[in-house]
Design a binder for these strands. Structure first.
Lengths: 157, 157
DNA sequence: AGCGGATACGTAATATTATAACGTTTTCGA
DNA sequence: TCGAAAACGTTATAATATTACGTATCCGCT
């Protein structure tokens, strides 16, 4: 279950995945949550790119190393990872991205490039504030937000 | 193809659907777009509630009056209606809602009550502004936004 | 160490959501 | 009224996600 370096990915990116996993291990330890080998592997696969990855892409990857893998295998792992803020679901893509600041509780806001597929998670407090303002007008209590901006990243314009 | 009054819906709501359809007819006329009987019927079905409705719910309703209805029937109609801003897709629900101000081009922002299912479309310009600010920081060009707040409406809290 | 409940996982089946492909019909301007 | 474009009918299938149920593993407790 060790992470093989991949010729198609930069050294930096492998390092970044490694860090993400280290953070996850740490976080789960603190919380008494069981980051099992499978869950860790799914996390690595999600972090394997800066794109959002589809559940069935993860499944295909996983099945290569573990022929018994089935949809629930992946969805269960994702559910766990999302519950711990290690991964977010991108509703507008039916796909999943690794979270690069899982430590703190936060609302996810994404910029998604429709050119290269890059997903950037941002934290723009004024978005949250504006939303809160809108919610107050309606007497609405916000529990969860989906904020996903599609367009073109700088490189793809 | 006439709209029957429904015992389960208020007079006001029927009136509201009627208005929505009138607006749609008007708008399509101006744009030279063909709001066919089927498309109009799907629009009515979407407007039939203030909830977001699933494509296959629409299909079931439609199939009751028109046994030949199939998924493409519904999805094509929805595609047309969305292209004209008469309906929005709610990504976080895989569902569709009627738009109550289709006349002007606008970005859709929703408050979705997880209690009663009510969907309120709002226009809070400060959300758009905050997003623009975030985008500028990244040099990102935003083409389309998904802003969906889940929580509880005033009545359901 | 060994029991027992809780958690995680294996596996098959199926539900839900959406699109592809291709032929026919309808619309509408030239 | 002809012909191209748009809309629609129909079948099939792709893509996404969950249910259900049995087994294995973990872990606190004695």
């Amino acid at each position: 279950m060790k992470i093989e370096p991949s010729a198609t990915r930069s050294h930096d990116h492998n390092a970044c995945v490694h860090d993400a996993v280290a953070t996850a291990v740490d976080l789960c330890e603190k919380r008494g949550a069981r980051l099992t080998a499978q869950r860790r592997r799914v996390l690595e696969l999600v972090w394997g790119s800066h794109r959002a990855v589809k559940a069935y892409e993860i499944l295909d990857d996983l099945a290569r190393e573990q022929p018994g893998a089935r949809p629930p295998t992946v969805y269960r792992a994702l559910e766990f990872l999302m519950a711990h803020g290690l991964v977010h679901r991108v509703d507008s893509l039916n796909a999943f991205v690794g979270c690069n600041h899982a430590r703190d509780r936060h609302e996810a806001q994404f910029f998604i490039c429709d050119g290269c597929g890059l997903v950037r998670e941002i934290d723009e407090p004024s978005i949250g504030q504006a939303v809160t303002r809108g919610a107050k007008k309606l007497g609405f209590r916000v529990d969860r937000q989906t904020v996903e901006m599609h367009g073109r990243c700088e490189a793809c314009q």
